[in-house]
Simulated assay, not measured.
Amino acid sequence: MNLKEPLWSKRTESNEHPSPSSSSPRDPESEAAAAAATSAVEELVNSLNKQRIYREVTLALRTGLCDVRAEFSFLRVRGLRFLLKSLRSIAQSDSSITLFSQTQSIPDLQVVPLLFEHSFKETEDEKVGSLDHIFSVEPMKVKSPSTDSEVALALRVLEGCCLLHPESTRLAHQHKAIPVLMNVLSTRGVLEQGACLDALISILLDSSANQMDFEACNGIEEVAELIRDKQVDENLRMKCGEFLLLLIGHINGRERSPIATIHEEFHGTSLLI
């Protein structure tokens, strides 16, 4: 989604270069009437522009979320790529960011819950508890597992949502985001792990609930373990170090943070880089 400037917002040459006759003296009443007309036109243009952006934002969300709900991973990947492109376009304008925040109060347009219900859902959750489907005429729904590319894209979308809309961190907490992301960090590949560290920063930012979950999951130790492991990709180990430094910098500006003991944990850990 690319938010383009509407045609009606562009000034014409006649507006930019007034005619000589317009420089002639005017009486106060005519000037007041002209000013009122100009103000009314500007209000109409602003209203039309706001409605246009809202339609584009909601259309982009509905299009992307439709694919994110799909049963096949390649369709979900397509939806996630579209959402990520849309979020990057939304981030370029304060007005579109405000409208995006408004859409996230509408359940059908919320992005974060669908990420955890589909892309981050473990394959084990799909196990069948009974064999009733064998004797039924109804076909059994089979959902393809999330690929590495899908998980990495979903993490980027999660990061974007939390940065543009801080309330998305609360939605992430409701879906146990920290345990899910720590599982990704410990079981997935380098591509997903790098995206996971960025997503962790965005959902921990100014979120006491997520910070408490991170502490309960021994997040510092998990990240430090990756740094100590010489078999881990060097770039990922450096990214883990940056992650810890960002946490420390964030806590230095706050008092009594839920993870305020990070300094002791960080300095007490033997980081053999």
Results as ranks from 00 to 15, higher is better:
127 K>P: 02
106 I>N: 06
175 H>Q: 13
98 T>F: 12
202 S>F: 08
83 L>G: 05
199 A>Y: 07
153 L>P: 12
182 M>Y: 15
105 S>F: 08
206 D>Q: 05
186 S>N: 13
204 L>P: 01
202 S>W: 10
169 T>D: 03
113 P>C: 09
206 D>L: 14
135 F>W: 11
155 L>S: 02
117 E>A: 11
170 R>Y: 07
154 A>C: 06
194 G>Q: 14
138 E>D: 12
99 L>D: 01
199 A>L: 11
98 T>V: 12
87 L>E: 00
96 S>D: 04
108 D>F: 06
118 H>K: 13
100 F>E: 03
204 L>K: 08
109 L>N: 07
91 A>L: 04
184 V>P: 05
131 L>T: 05
145 P>W: 15
109 L>C: 08
143 K>F: 08
123 T>A: 07
126 E>N: 06
150 E>G: 12
112 V>G: 00
93 S>A: 11
126 E>Q: 08
123 T>D: 15
108 D>I: 07
206 D>I: 00
181 L>G: 10
124 E>P: 03
187 T>E: 14
191 L>G: 02
136 S>V: 03
119 S>E: 02
152 A>P: 06
94 D>M: 13
149 S>W: 05
117 E>W: 05
171 L>S: 14
142 V>K: 11
95 S>K: 14
149 S>F: 03
187 T>A: 12
186 S>I: 13
152 A>N: 07
200 L>T: 01
84 L>R: 10
86 S>G: 03
84 L>F: 13
106 I>V: 07
96 S>T: 02
136 S>P: 06
141 K>H: 10
176 K>W: 11
185 L>N: 08
153 L>C: 11
120 F>G: 11
115 L>Y: 09
158 L>F: 08
141 K>I: 10
139 P>L: 04
89 S>G: 11
186 S>P: 00
206 D>V: 01
191 L>M: 15
152 A>S: 14
160 G>H: 00
88 R>E: 15
93 S>W: 03
102 Q>C: 07
140 M>W: 01
166 P>C: 00
196 C>M: 12
165 H>G: 01
127 K>F: 14
139 P>Y: 09
121 K>L: 10
209 A>N: 09
134 I>P: 00
88 R>S: 09
165 H>M: 03
177 A>Q: 06
83 L>T: 02
130 S>A: 07
92 Q>Y: 00
164 L>T: 02
104 Q>V: 04
99 L>K: 12
117 E>N: 15
194 G>H: 13
95 S>V: 04
179 P>T: 08
141 K>P: 01
169 T>H: 01
126 E>Y: 04
130 S>R: 10
167 E>Q: 11
124 E>K: 13
138 E>A: 11
178 I>C: 13
109 L>D: 06
127 K>Q: 09
172 A>G: 09
193 Q>R: 15
189 G>W: 01
